[in-house]
Design a protein around this nucleic acid. Structure first.
Lengths: 354, 354
DNA sequence: CCCCTTTTTCAAAGCGGTTTGGATCCTGAT
DNA sequence: ATCAGGATCCAAACCGCTTTGAAAAAGGGG
């Protein structure tokens, strides 16, 4: 059932039926009702391609998910972010298209989006330092909102980001105030902007309390469970081990915990862990007393906000860039405690072992 | 730059240019080259909506992701599955649209997909027992492939599934052969088909070895880390606790491990754990010796296969349903070992305490 | 009752492609 | 030279919707 057939059944022109359905004022209330009920009865829905062709807009938002070439890791954050964004799209009759793309063809995807008219705008995921995609999208003239930011990119653009710096600065100071002096940082990949900012925050926290930043205590890589485990093993086995860990992801934090407990140590009592918690639905850290002390901020909520921002921008193309900075809250859980005066000395010679 | 402009620049008709670009034979080789290079120079790409309108096909596959109403959990499997499917779509010039949808409006989404012509086919996620969506999609006449199967649905359809039953039967027998007699099952939600089948496999394994199935040892819910932890705590704290756990997801298995180690017990030595491992990229269980003994099967690969199946079906609509049953492999890791003759007796009175 | 506004409705022209049914131009065979 | 037939190319119709510009109908005032 298409518009022509429907209007024919009603004895009306396509024009009138179309207008009735789209809520234009120049159609009589009586006819509008007649049209509406007929459309419902015949289960009529306008063909989206035809509509798009006529209006020039696709009512579709593109999400490009680059597969990190290094490890083929699919961003675990993605599901929840997209769930948030999807809510907003659904409520506004927008469609979402997803491109999984190898890093190097990403530019081509954006260009195709624009020239083929596949989408009305895109959400940019996983911005890196000096991310070229931002200026690229501006050149292309495709409306976009970034989930995160890109240090080093001067351009003005809309983004939704957590205050990673302040979050990790606070977390670091929190640990220092508990008496910790050797605090390890288990970070995400350094080329990612969020990871960069978190490290800055960590270093800020240290310097504000007058502590030096020791490169030997910092690790950074894809935030898998295994990475958390391996890093913690290495650090705990080294000379002058940390008494606390600041971790960029709950998944890695699970790995850190494994390493800690495998050594017969106890979280909070022997080793403190603070993690960044994106509040992923399947990794609920909640309950009355959170498992991990965490700086947390809902990535799902970020998805909602980013989507809303983008839709607003598409509706009013002349509008100014609108950055949103979310503050993470620091919630105390069961993984932190005061530094022990004397960490249990391993029965090995400290020096010489290299 | 659209077709009209391009053909005008070339001094050719739209027909010829279109045919040259789409590889039809009735155009001279010389002109074809001329067209091709002009298209490249002017960066021409056909508008996808116009093309879709004309051809009647959208070159788009729909994925509907129902948010589990119960806990608002976003399926953590989803990211990797879609990464696999996306590879195939990208290679075949297909687009992927994603609908995040509350359970009860899912039917409406499929109907809209069909009548609006948004997609050429859909992949069905998370089939439940007697899932109504399958017959619905057949009624609607939308090509589809199911990731998983639906017990109780008689219809013939294409699906890609792991042999959950045999996987969990083998895992159970494996544990029994190690001497375990009390084996707990930490399963996914029972209404999900895969969870149902895993329980069947578990029970099969037990009966084949002449052991009874004890309902007190079975738990089932959303497969979060917390659920694994809570379940393991409850079971380990009860009278006659299990010596082994069969877990439906690595995420829950992490929770089980936490509960185990928190009690001062050691994996493999005191408590054995076998988990189903979907080989999610951020939960790498790999390495030379896997952390968890696991029945494993790549969900990413399943995504690839499902996508290929669907594209083939769309290309040849008359083709017969094509089910694909993947076998999970049982890989032995560091989380299993022989049952200890005498589990460390807790210092409490066994009876009376209820 | 007529004329002028305001409502309400319509025919037709796009939107940017594909595809049908011819037309034109070359060949080589007769 | 003529003609069949294949190789090329083209004009126009069509896909299903929106939207412009105009016409028809209805309402209101004198």
């Amino acid at each position: 059932m298409n518009l022509k057939q429907l209007s024919h059944r009603l004895g009306l022109s396509q024009t009138t039926v179309s207008r009735a359905l789209n809520g234009y004022p120049e159609v009589g209330e009586a006819t509008r009702q007649r049209v509406l009920s007929a459309a419902a009865r015949y289960n009529y829905r306008p063909n989206s391609r035809a509509k798009g062709l006529a209006t020039g807009r696709s009512h579709t938002i593109g999400h490009v998910l680059p597969t990190t070439t290094r490890h083929e890791v699919v961003n675990p954050i993605f599901g929840d972010f997209i769930a948030g964004a999807g809510e907003v799209y659904a409520a506004n009759d927008y469609e979402m298209v997803l491109s999984i793309v190898e890093d190097d063809t990403e530019e081509e995807v954006y260009r195709a989006f624009k020239t083929r008219g596949t989408v009305d705008g895109v959400i940019l995921h996983g911005p890196k330092l000096n991310d070229r995609r931002i200026t690229l999208l501006q050149e292309i003239g495709l409306p976009f909102v970034v989930h995160g930011r890109a240090s080093g990119v001067a351009a003005d653009y809309s983004w939704v980001d957590v205050n990673n710096t302040s979050a990790f600065a606070r977390a670091t100071e929190f640990l220092i105030d508990l008496g910790h002096r050797r605090i390890a940082l288990i970070n995400g990949p350094e080329e990612m902007d969020f990871a960069h900012r978190r490290r800055c925050g960590y270093e800020d926290g240290l310097t504000r309390r007058g502590l030096p930043a020791d490169p030997a205590l910092m690790r950074s890589d894809e935030m898998t469970e295994r990475f958390g485990y391996d890093s913690a093993c290495a650090l705990l086995g080294a000379a002058d081990p940390p008494t606390a860990f600041l971790v960029a992801s709950v998944i890695s934090a699970l790995g850190v915990r494994r390493a800690v407990e495998e050594r017969g140590l106890r979280l909070a009592r022997d080793i403190s862990v603070v993690t960044f918690d994106d509040m992923l639905s399947y990794l609920d850290n909640g309950g009355q007393v959170p498992v991990f002390t965490a700086t947390r901020s809902s990535v799902r909520d970020a998805g909602r906000r980013a989507a809303r921002l983008l839709l607003a921008q598409i509706a009013a193309p002349a509008s100014l860039p609108d950055p949103v900075l979310l503050e993470a809250e620091l919630t105390v859980g069961q993984s932190t405690g005061p530094a022990r005066p004397l960490p249990p000395a391993p029965l090995t010679l400290p020096a010489k072992t290299r």
